[in-house]
């Protein structure tokens, strides 16, 4: 190969990208700039779509109903008509002319907190067993969990309704908690199992060597290492129990003192006597605890749910 041809080839090699740079980049750059703008527009649209309903909820809840009917198109209430009467109305007990949401809040809290505690007490040993212990039927258990989510909730609602009526659990919060446990324990076990598996087995074996029993290992080694997962699982259970509607409706509809907030809001929103703005205050009361909890713990929760999904 002569030096001349070599330099020609070199020149071509150098020139080729140069030519490409001359022709390609403007189009590509324009495309990229366009995409950059599109990206922000999309983010803005998504933000409006996700936030507007909640904003609307909040804004309607501080307006008197007359103002809404007079001027439905204004989103922002004028300062002089701003009111917190709606919240008084919705929270006060029925005997004082209110809707009794304070009682409903109490019921929801009792149900949700007991569900969390019991789901963890039942789920932690189960998750540990699935993660670490080779018991017979370990594989079948996962199939059982899947089956729980395959069937519509309403199909088991019919027999449960009958059973709970007969043993006197239907009109009680206890019955509701039992149903929520069945709905949440499988997810809880799934979330915690994923985490327990990340605890190195060697650490646990060291514990066994040092004379701890299996339960001792679980209690002294695995659980302290898994606190984030336990928190995330507890929060998830709390949300499911707090938001649940169908079983609350089926079991408690004729017992107003035991209504949860979700049930109370859905029952009252069907009647015309209660003004919309008062019910909006009720929606805020129902939504706010969940949103606060969620913003405090967002990282924990999303990480706990999708653990293992990164691998695809």
């Amino acid at each position: 190969m002569s030096t001349a041809t070599a330099s020609a080839v070199a020149a071509e090699v150098v020139e080729a990208p140069a030519r490409r740079r001359r022709s390609r980049p403007p189009a590509s750059r324009r495309q990229r700039a366009f995409l950059g703008t599109l990206r922000w527009v999309t983010i803005a649209l998504f933000l409006i779509a996700t936030l507007l309903p909640f904003l609307y909820m909040l804004l309607l809840s501080v307006r008197p109903i007359e103002s809404l009917l007079r001027d439905p198109s204004s989103l922002l209430p004028s300062l002089d008509e701003l009111t917190l009467e709606t919240y008084r109305d919705v929270l006060a007990p029925v005997s004082e002319g209110g809707q009794g949401f304070l009682t409903f809040l109490g019921n929801s809290a009792i149900v949700a907190v007991s569900s969390v505690i019991l789901a963890l007490v039942i789920g932690i040993p189960g998750a540990y067993a699935i993660a670490r212990l080779p018991f017979r039927g370990r594989r079948q258990v996962s199939g059982l969990f899947l089956a729980t989510y395959l069937f519509p909730a309403i199909i088991i609602a019919i027999p449960l309704f009958v059973i709970f009526t007969r043993i006197g659990l239907r009109g009680s919060l206890v019955g509701l908690v039992i149903v929520y446990l069945a709905q949440t324990v499988p997810v809880a076990i799934y979330m915690m199992r994923n985490y327990f598996q990340t605890v190195p087995e060697s650490v646990e074996e060291a514990g066994l060597m040092d004379g701890l029993s299996r339960l001792g290992v679980m209690w002294r080694i695995t659980l302290p290492l898994s606190m984030p997962s336990l928190m995330a699982t507890g929060l998830f259970v709390f949300m499911i129990a707090w938001n649940e509607f169908l079983f609350a409706l089926l079991f408690l509809v004729d017992k107003r003192p035991l209504w949860t907030v979700s049930l109370g809001l859905s029952q009252l929103s069907g009647s015309i006597e209660v003004p919309t703005t008062v019910l909006m205050a009720g929606s805020v009361v129902l939504t706010l605890p969940i949103i606060i909890l969620f913003f405090l713990t967002e990282r924990l929760l999303t990480g706990g749910l999708t653990a293992g999904a990164e691998k695809g």
């Binding site: 309903p53 707090w242 938001n243 907030v261 979700s262 859905s266 909006m280 929606s283 939504t287 969940i290």
Partner: peptide
């Protein structure tokens, strides 16, 4: 994450 009863009501 928001309760279904609240968001359906707002909608």
């Amino acid at each position: 994450v928001a309760p279904v009863v609240a968001v359906t009501f707002v909608w």
